[in-house]
Amino acid sequence: MAAVHRRLARNRRRRHVLVRPRVFRDRSNPLESLDDFEIYQRYRFCPDTIHFLVNGVSDQLVTATKRNSPVPPLLQVLLFLRFVATGAHLRLIGDSLGISESSVGRSVKAVAAAIIAVFAQATLVFPVGEIATKVKEGFRRVAGFPKVIGCVDGTQIRISTPKANEADYVNRKGFHSLNVQMVCDPNFRITSLCARWPGSCHDARIWRTSGLYQKFENGDYDGILLGDSWYPLSRYLMTPYLTPRTQSEERFNSSLCRTRVLIEQTFGIMKRKFQALHFGLRTSPDQAVSYITACCILHNIGIERGDTIISGDCRELNVADCQQAVITAHPRADGVAKRASITQSFFLKS
């Protein structure tokens, strides 16, 4: 035992003697050394939009430290964009810009929080007034469905195995995830987001506990949402007929699904642009919620500024894709009457 203690003491002395020298790396500006196409390929945004983001969040980012050479706001934003664009490990992202893994982790968390604090209220906004009228007209042009103000659905975002309540995060496909509910408009913008629920939670439960549900119950919004059969049929949320018996009901289903598929396409656009959402977030549920929210905000900013490319692949989903859900939510009487009224008024004739 004495020999073991002597060896441990000797190793401790060696660690104190062999102090790692501090290395100050050259942190060049990638926006100056790359052309616009290369910048977009790496960070999913054009230089003008990146500068727009930096100007917005720079005041929220802490750059003054007791040590030398803090990471400037521009590089912090680039680190976060690279992280969500690739889903790579923090060490690999840091190597691309000459920054340590720990600094990358702090920067990514700080930028996500700053984006939410600065842009969330102005970007994730449910349409009202004249904007709601334009949204309804846009949905009407898609498939002729009347008075639609949004399409709602949930998507599973993979996360690391959580330390608390691990079983709650296992979804029906067998992996740990968050069940993220979103609402989109006809231009693929996200107008409502609820990202805090574990993967095992049912879509109907998430909907009933959301703030958007309560506002529709109170009559704050004039219009209807479209969802699949996982959602409860109500006067403001239309779902397909499970077994259509007439041609008008079949036309109702066809129009609803051609319109509702926009939310599926929105998920596809987001997960192509931000690969971290596709491959999964190796972090805790709370931090994953922050990253997902920031990605939704960036998605909307990209659409508004023309940085999000809508490819033909995103439109490959068809009507059958939204008819595969098995009905599990009980319809409400007011919803049955409202659906019958819409069917008779708009889909009686071909």
Rank of each mutant, 00 (worst) to 15 (best):
V170W: 01
R158P: 01
R172A: 04
G144L: 07
R141T: 12
G154Y: 06
V152W: 05
K163I: 07
N171K: 06
D153S: 08
V170L: 13
Q156T: 05
K163M: 03
Y169C: 06
I159K: 03
F139E: 06
V152Q: 08
R172M: 06
N165H: 15
D153M: 12
F145Y: 06
A167N: 10
R172G: 06
V148P: 00
F145R: 02
K147A: 08
E166K: 13
V152I: 15
K163T: 15
I149E: 11
C151N: 09
D168C: 10
V142G: 07
I157F: 13
K147T: 05
G154E: 11
T161M: 13
V148T: 09
R172P: 00
G150L: 10
S160F: 06
T155A: 15
G150I: 13
V152S: 06
P146Q: 08
T155H: 11
N171P: 08
Q156P: 00
R158Q: 07
I159P: 11
I159D: 10
A143I: 09
P162G: 10
K147E: 13
K147Q: 09
P146W: 08
S160A: 15
T155G: 15
P146T: 06
C151I: 06
V142E: 06
D168A: 15
T161I: 13
I159Y: 09
D168V: 00
R141H: 12
A167T: 13
K147C: 01
V148M: 04
P162Y: 11
K163C: 11
R158K: 14
G154R: 03
A143E: 03
T161D: 01
A164T: 08
G150S: 02
V148F: 02
F145C: 04
A164E: 15
R172N: 00
I159N: 05
N171G: 13
A167D: 15
R158G: 07
G144C: 11
V142L: 14
N171F: 02
I149F: 01
I157Q: 05
G150V: 06
A143D: 04
D168S: 14
V170A: 01
N165C: 07
V148E: 02
T155R: 08
R172F: 02
N171C: 09
F145H: 06
E166M: 12
F139Y: 15
K163V: 14
R141Y: 04
T161P: 01
V152E: 05
Q156W: 02
F139I: 09
I157D: 03
Q156N: 10
Y169D: 13
A164R: 14
Q156F: 13
S160Y: 02
D168L: 07
G150C: 04
N165V: 01
R140F: 13
A167L: 11
T155K: 12
E166V: 14
I149V: 12
V142I: 15
I159W: 04
G144A: 07
R140P: 00
